[in-house]
């Protein structure tokens, strides 16, 4: 080795031990050294502490504290060593142009164009067939990747399980009697047999206590005067903005608010959106009371529920 060294040193830089570039940054290296030693010892103790904590308990705060102290102590010590005690230079490195010479570029493009050119030009049919085959493979390979993922939408977004005469039930499947809700009461209801189903969720609100035979609760939209019964009104609970459950009912102002993006719907005026990003009223479910005094739907929703989509007319 000693024989080779002089030759190597001729090409590579050599520095004396007292070269200013090799001196530590710290004015008092021993003090920094003491701090780094202390820090690393604390780090070591932290890791030991983590090991003990893990075995005797599963206390998250102690685990984090010991691990954090361990990691930080070790890291701080090493960083202080690097910053204050190691050679600080400044050192310099030359940049070299990494782009090729013009001749090399020409050679590269010639290798592609000329060598490739004679091959492809001589056998155009082969080249064309290969391109056709590879392209076709690329297209058909995507078929299973895309089409097998799930079903086509079909009419799924247009329909719910609410039909004529669907019985309104609570989440637990309890039918709703006309006497169940006070004025100002709300209840999330589903068609019987579909409790918990997302598109069917409907919010039932009692706006007034109207005796049988009296005129129905006046609603703003024309043609819906008989959609309420005994002061009950029901709307789809899926927001027309992004489908969040519109579960926030302000009783005094008679507004439904969507907790996600704060669209505000006027319950008395057919749930038209008064404020916020929701574009359409919540679809309304026409209600009636059956002979046993249970609430039922007159019909399903007259439009798709939830957010807008392309196929919606």
């Amino acid at each position: 080795m000693s024989d080779e060294s002089p030759q190597l040193t001729g090409a590579l830089p050599v520095a004396a031990l007292d070269d200013p570039h090799l001196q530590p940054y710290a004015a008092h290296p021993e003090r920094v050294n003491a701090v780094a030693v202390l820090s690393m010892v604390v780090g070591f103790l932290g890791f030991i502490g983590f090991g003990i904590t893990f075995w005797i308990s599963d206390q998250v705060q102690w685990e984090a504290a010991t691990l954090g102290v361990g990691l930080f102590g070790l890291g701080f010590g090493v960083a202080a060593w690097g910053k204050y005690l190691m050679p600080q230079g400044p050192f310099v490195e030359e940049r070299h142009d990494f782009h090729s010479t013009e001749a090399e570029r020409d050679a590269m493009s010639a290798a592609v164009l000329e060598r490739g050119g004679i091959v492809v030009k001589r056998r155009k049919v082969l080249g064309g067939l290969f391109a056709l085959g590879a392209g076709t493979f690329g297209v058909v390979a995507a078929f299973p990747l895309i089409r097998s993922l799930g079903p086509k939408p079909g009419r799924a977004l247009f329909t719910t399980n609410w039909k004529k005469d669907s019985l309104l039930v609570s989440l637990e499947g309890r039918p709703v009697k006309v006497s169940d809700l006070d004025v100002g009461g709300v209840l999330t209801v589903f068609p019987k047999g579909f409790e918990g189903s997302s598109p069917d969720q409907t919010i039932l609100i009692r706006l007034a206590d109207i005796a049988p035979g009296e005129p129905p609760f006046p609603l703003a939209p024309p043609g819906r005067s008989d959609w309420t019964v005994r002061g009950y009104v029901a709307y789809s609970k899926m927001c027309t903005h992004l489908g969040c459950p519109v579960g926030l009912y302000q009783e005094q102002t008679q507004q439904l608010v969507c907790p996600c993006h704060q669209s505000i719907f006027n319950v008395v005026a057919g749930a038209i959106p008064e404020f916020g990003p929701a574009p359409r009223p919540l679809p309304q479910l026409p209600l009636k009371v059956d002979a046993q005094g249970f609430l039922r739907s007159q019909a399903g929703y007259d439009q798709p529920v939830g957010p807008g989509f392309w196929e919606r007319p």
Binding site: P13, L17, D18, H21, G89, E93
Partner: peptide, 17 residues
């Protein structure tokens, strides 16, 4: 040390003072 002229990184260091 900011004022020192930068040098290339020394590959060999004369470890003997």
């Amino acid at each position: 040390h900011e004022e020192i002229e930068p040098i290339p990184v020394p590959t060999f260091i004369n470890l003997v003072p």
